[in-house]
Computed example of a mutant assay.
Amino acid sequence: MRKSNHEGAINLTIEQALHQRHSVRQFTDQPVPLATVREILAAAQLAPSWVNSQPYQIHLAMGAPLERVRQQQAAQEAAGTPGTPDLPVMSRHDWSPQAQRNMADWSAGLGDAGKAMGATAAQLYHAPVVLYLTLPKGYSNWSLYDLGALGNSIVLAATDRGLASMTAYQFIKYPQMLRRELAIPADEDIIVGIGLGYRDDQALVNTIRATRMPLDKILTVHD
């Protein structure tokens, strides 16, 4: 396994990438080469989709366009503007009991690091690259699975190249602003955003880690 200074491990096995990937909530200002992002996306395109439909589009924001988005996002956050995402957000109280317990346990364990989450989120985690994944209006529900497979493939491919990632609602909270600033067509629903960059090792917010339930809590073997 090769290493490259701050950029971390590359040429990982799938299992190594799965274990090393975690959500990073503050990135450094180190730029990410466009060529590297294109390599990540080309690898992620190998993800399966229904009858090879590949129903999604990817809008890549970096440089000046992303800074405009970041400024607009911060202004709307400061004004207390409520989010109006294309994919409705369900109240935590409406999730399953299992999901509610997991979310409550995660929130209870945030400690001091949790206090910094709002400020860094308002700045889109300072990510130097944000990918906006969209689906055409009227999409099949199956396409949500396909887009999820693409998104997970993106973050694993990024991990393999020494990049950190963050998949977050925060990126797509204000879709009308995104359509205006990035010229995203009105006939595309903005489903999820993924930030890419290099992890800020000094940021307290990056000490947050999530645990997973024991496998037997979600697995039923029918043999």
Rank of each mutant, 00 (worst) to 15 (best):
V24R: 06
S107C: 06
L34M: 07
Q176Y: 00
R68S: 11
V24K: 03
Q98G: 06
D189A: 15
Q57T: 15
M213Y: 10
A186W: 00
V24N: 02
Q73V: 14
R38Y: 15
M166T: 06
P85K: 01
A64N: 12
E188P: 05
S140Y: 14
V129W: 03
I208N: 02
D94A: 13
T84H: 07
Y132P: 07
S91E: 08
G138Y: 11
I191E: 02
L204S: 08
A61L: 14
K115P: 09
S49C: 02
V130Y: 00
T120K: 09
E15T: 12
M103C: 05
R101V: 15
V32N: 01
V221D: 04
G114M: 06
A158M: 07
Q71E: 13
F171Q: 08
T36E: 15
F171H: 10
T167L: 14
D200G: 03
A183F: 02
Q71H: 13
A78E: 15
G195R: 02
G109L: 12
A42M: 06
H222D: 10
T167W: 08
A43F: 04
L163T: 02
Q73R: 11
D201N: 07
R101C: 04
K137C: 13
A61M: 11
R70N: 07
Q45W: 05
P85V: 05
E67R: 01
T120D: 12
K115S: 14
H59Y: 09
T134N: 01
A149D: 08
W142Y: 15
K115E: 13
F171R: 03
P128N: 10
R70D: 07
Y145T: 07
L215K: 09
Q98V: 14
G193Q: 04
Q202P: 00
L219F: 10
V129M: 02
E39F: 00
G148L: 00
Q57S: 15
Q98S: 08
T120N: 12
A61G: 08
A164Q: 04
W95H: 11
S143M: 05
Q30T: 15
A122F: 03
H93D: 13
G118L: 02
S165F: 11
D105C: 07
Q76G: 04
H6V: 15
S165Q: 04
V192I: 14
L60R: 06
N152G: 07
P48K: 06
W106G: 00
A43M: 12
R101K: 13
L196E: 01
A47C: 07
G197H: 01
G162F: 11
A75S: 14
P33Q: 12
K115I: 06
V24S: 01
S4L: 15
L178N: 07
R212A: 11
H22A: 00
T220M: 03
D187Y: 06
P55Y: 05
S107H: 12
M90S: 11
N52H: 14
H222L: 09
R199M: 13
I172V: 15
S165W: 10
A186V: 13
S91R: 06
E77R: 14
I154Q: 00
E7S: 12
I184L: 02
